[in-house]
């Protein structure tokens, strides 16, 4: 479990528009990598290209290589559906399925793929996933209530439980706390610490303190200019990026002088 991701010379397009240019980065296994940078610089776009969610948008495409454990995700023989089963994703806004109960939401990955399983097995998966997402104690007595009956923070942890119930290798998180209050945020950050031992986690965040708190490595993205594509400015250990960055733009952003 838990694989490293090596990206080389990745260009991401929406139609003819080059959104992210020439990204080369190694994301180590069993660690948390944070993407920071101003809005519109392509962090989320890049994150979505890591599990081929990018292609869901019409006319979106990529050039370059994304290797997970040496396998090229964009190779001809790769199936995007299988890629997404291996690389899970948590979104900015909690999005539990409104037609399903809490239980069904957790097991949705199996259920939507019509995987047949014994009740005991699915019970076990639900309990394990909810425990790992730190939600079990709060919902164990109301698993049949609708997922949308939970609070925002609980819904987001439900979405994390749903994402890890399919046993992915990598977990991508696109600003998972931006719609949450500080207490839910801290619950999710604790959860990220826990999950780090089993998963490779990549998180996009606008919150610099959060990046400093949760991540081992940090990558700073920036626009090269108005209307120009976003690019990766600098990447390295989080302590180094935050204390002694190489690029002046990184330093300016981290100290809050722009962005």
């Amino acid at each position: 479990m838990a694989k490293s991701i090596d990206v080389s010379d990745l260009n991401i397009y929406y139609g003819d528009f080059l959104a992210v240019e020439d990204v080369t980065i190694d994301i180590p296994a069993r660690s948390v990598t944070a993407f920071i940078g101003p809005s519109g610089c392509g962090k989320s776009t890049f994150l979505r290209s890591l599990n081929r969610m990018h292609e869901v948008i019409p006319n979106a495409r990529v050039e370059g290589k994304v290797l997970i454990d040496g396998q090229d995700l964009y190779g001809d023989e790769m199936d995007p559906v299988n890629v997404r089963r291996t690389i899970g994703m948590v979104f900015q806004r909690p999005n539990p399925f409104p037609t399903m109960s809490i239980y069904d939401n957790v097991i949705a990955g199996q259920k939507l793929n019509s995987k047949r399983m014994k009740k005991a097995d699915s019970d076990a998966i639900v309990e394990r996933s909810l425990r790992r997402a730190g939600l079990w104690a709060e919902v164990k007595d109301r698993l049949n209530r609708p997922g949308s009956s939970l609070s925002g923070g609980q819904q987001q942890r439900l979405c994390i439980a749903r994402a890890i119930s399919v046993e992915p290798e990598v977990l991508l998180m696109d600003e998972p706390c931006s719609a949450l209050d500080p207490i839910s945020t801290s619950a999710i950050e604790d959860l990220i610490h826990e999950l780090k031992s089993e998963y490779t986690i990549v998180i996009v965040t606008h919150n610099m303190q959060q990046a400093a708190r949760v991540s081992d490595d940090t990558a700073f993205f920036n626009l090269s200019g108005v209307g120009k594509p976003g690019r990766l400015v600098e990447t390295g250990r989080t302590e180094k990026i935050f204390s002694n960055p190489e690029d002046p733009a990184t330093e300016a952003y981290i100290q809050g002088r722009f962005g």
Partner: peptide
């Protein structure tokens, strides 16, 4: 978002 949530689960 619901469609994306489903795609992200490998559906």
């Amino acid at each position: 978002e619901l469609r994306e949530a489903s795609y992200a689960l490998g559906v």
